[in-house]
């Protein structure tokens, strides 16, 4: 752990906020990509089955 001096709170806070935002954005994107893919696959399979 580097010595952050008297500004430790500020530095940690900005890293924490940014990382949380980035991770949330990535998580939402991946989750939506997965669900969209699954939903599309399901619909396509059903249409193929029904002719």
């Amino acid at each position: 752990m580097p010595d952050l001096g008297k500004y430790a709170t500020e530095v940690m806070a900005s890293y924490a906020v940014s990382l949380v935002l980035i991770v949330a954005l990535v998580a939402v994107s991946v989750w939506r990509a997965r669900s969209a893919k699954a939903a599309l696959d399901a619909v396509e399979a059903r249409i193929k089955r029904n002719g």
Partner: peptide, 27 residues
């Protein structure tokens, strides 16, 4: 790179979502 990756992924999502809407509408 993060931006490019996210845009690729999210564009795929949008394409799939739109295709699904089109399929459902046709059905």
């Amino acid at each position: 790179l993060l931006f490019v990756a996210l845009v690729f992924l999210r564009t795929q999502t949008e394409i799939r979502a739109r295709r699904m809407r089109a399929l459902l509408a046709r059905e």
